[in-house]
Amino acid sequence: MADLDPRFQRGAVEAAIRIGLLFVLVLWCFEIIRPFITPVVWAVILAVALYPMFCKLKSWLGGRGGLAAALIAIVGMAILLLPGFQIAASAVDSVAAIGAQLEEGSFSLPPPASAVKAWPLVGDLIFQHWSQASTDIEKYLLTYAADIKRVVGGAAAFAASLFGGILMFCLSLAIAAFLMANGAACEAACRRIAFGLLDERGGQLMQLSRDTIQSVAKGVLGVAVIQSTLIAVGFFVVGVPGAAVLYVVLLVVAIAQLPSILVVVPVIIYVFQTETTLVAILFTAWSVLAGLSDNVLKPMLLGRGIDVPMLVILLGSLGGMLMSGFIGLFVGAVVLALGYQLFMGWLEINTQTPQEDSPRSE
Results as ranks from 00 to 15, higher is better:
1 M>K: 07
14 E>L: 12
18 R>F: 09
21 L>F: 13
22 L>K: 10
28 W>R: 11
35 P>W: 05
36 F>Q: 10
37 I>L: 15
40 V>A: 14
45 I>P: 03
47 A>T: 00
48 V>C: 07
60 W>L: 13
68 A>M: 05
74 I>R: 01
83 P>K: 00
87 I>Q: 10
88 A>D: 07
89 A>V: 06
92 V>M: 13
96 A>D: 15
100 A>R: 10
103 E>H: 10
105 G>F: 04
112 P>L: 02
113 A>F: 00
117 K>D: 14
120 P>M: 08
126 I>L: 15
136 D>Y: 01
149 K>G: 15
156 A>H: 07
157 A>I: 09
162 L>D: 10
162 L>M: 08
164 G>K: 03
166 I>C: 05
167 L>N: 03
171 L>I: 15
173 L>W: 03
173 L>C: 05
175 I>G: 05
179 L>F: 15
186 C>G: 04
189 A>E: 12
190 C>R: 12
191 R>V: 06
193 I>P: 03
198 L>D: 02
201 R>K: 15
208 L>M: 08
217 A>C: 11
222 G>R: 02
236 F>T: 03
238 V>P: 03
248 V>P: 05
262 L>P: 09
264 V>C: 09
265 V>W: 14
266 P>H: 09
267 V>R: 02
268 I>F: 13
270 Y>T: 00
273 Q>S: 14
275 E>K: 13
281 I>E: 11
305 G>W: 01
310 M>W: 09
312 V>Q: 00
314 L>E: 02
315 L>C: 15
315 L>V: 11
327 I>H: 00
334 V>A: 01
340 Y>F: 15
343 F>D: 06
347 L>I: 12
353 T>F: 12
357 D>Y: 09
